[in-house]
Design a protein around this nucleic acid. Sequence first.
DNA 1: TATATTTGTTAGACATGCCTAACTAAATTA
DNA 2: TAATTTAGTTAGGCATGTCTAACAAATATA
Lengths: 218, 218
Amino acid sequence: MVSQAEENYLKALFHLTSDIPEKTEAGTNELADMLDVTPATANNMLKKLKEKGWVSYEKYGKISLTDKGRVLAVEIIRKHRLWETFLYEKLNFTWDEVHEVAEQLEHIQSVKLVQQLEKFLDFPEIDPHGDPIPNEKGEIRFIKRKTLAEIEESKTCKLVAVKDNSSSFLQYVVKLGLGLSSKIKVLGRREFDGSMEIEVNKVRSSISKKVAQNLLVV
Amino acid sequence: MVSQAEENYLKALFHLTSDIPEKTEAGTNELADMLDVTPATANNMLKKLKEKGWVSYEKYGKISLTDKGRVLAVEIIRKHRLWETFLYEKLNFTWDEVHEVAEQLEHIQSVKLVQQLEKFLDFPEIDPHGDPIPNEKGEIRFIKRKTLAEIEESKTCKLVAVKDNSSSFLQYVVKLGLGLSSKIKVLGRREFDGSMEIEVNKVRSSISKKVAQNLLVV
DNA sequence: TATATTTGTTAGACATGCCTAACTAAATTA
DNA sequence: TAATTTAGTTAGGCATGTCTAACAAATATA
Ligand SMILES: [Mn+2]
Ligand SMILES: [Mn+2]
Ligand SMILES: [Mn+2]
Ligand SMILES: [Mn+2]
């Protein structure tokens, strides 16, 4: 049995240790931060997760998921992204509305439900934010992407995903005229703060470095 | 805020005090029984529900829902039955599989989700077990029904709902050749145990009184 | 009506998951 | 390397929701 709280920790650990290939370990504070709990709380849960064999760590050491833990985490992410896709494709939700509800739906336990949902959606490959949906075996079709902040001046690229799933960020992205598959031309960059001038559908905008780092492009 | 546990108590109380028109009050043991908890646990929760203004009862007295409590309960039942319909209609679940998963899905909090789900299902009136689905205002289209046990000998009736939602019962019902809208002819009844001889699609079966009391007909 | 049975309540305990405050170890900086 | 800062841990407490055991009230039965 995996409780909802435990599932949330496993999912957070997966994001902290697998989303960026170079970063394969996490710390207590970082984890606590992502889950909006205190480090004491995270530490306490880590002991339980270790006890259950889902996490490996030693006192004052770095945290990582075991193979078992990773399997569980991927299952939850799979459900999360399938539900987001369902809400977006079938129930008229916008991409800034899906995440919050999927945070609840991802905890529903039923193998058949997930299988049938995937079939009903015709085996989608990416969710409304451009993130890959793991298949039933837990395999993730990894897509090589850069952040917009890494794109050189005068080059044009295509938005394929967003890192930040918060509704405020997504609404701002829409305001910039952007959506998945949008073409973005990098006009220029101010070196002292990393902010960028971009052009989308002939409309120019200035965006901060932080924003550029949350837009994933190819 | 209504917790999942609280929602389950409200729903159980609704079934105990509104499903049968003559029975408008419930007792602690009865409630505990329905929720598979001890009477002590139910008693403890009742105090909290009373405190929140959802339940009215006095020590050693009978329990009933307040108007506020009833509104909450109907919302949960509405969600439960919409999800059951979704699973049945869209995701290839059988009627004996839907209840268990709906027990989880009914607790998802999102007004938009329920509205859109209902629209997606084209405003269904009954769930896979023949039970009416409350509308957004909380109105329930009440259907007058009898149990098969009340039908006289040699009369024919139509199955419109099942009282017991357990998968074992529903599978047995299917084995009898029955489904919603099936025609049932009452051939005879043994007085000493209330068991009945019935005919469905030219197949005769003998069923216990208990079973007959869980089949709702018109 | 006295007794037995059923129904409901209270007290005390426990697991889960969270907190704050105090502390310790590790890493950084002077 | 010593001092400071950051990261991580421990102790103790609390809310929720559950339990068992003991008890009290209400109801049914003799
Ligand atoms: Mn999301
Ligand atoms: Mn997503
Ligand atoms: Mn049901
Ligand atoms: Mn039903």
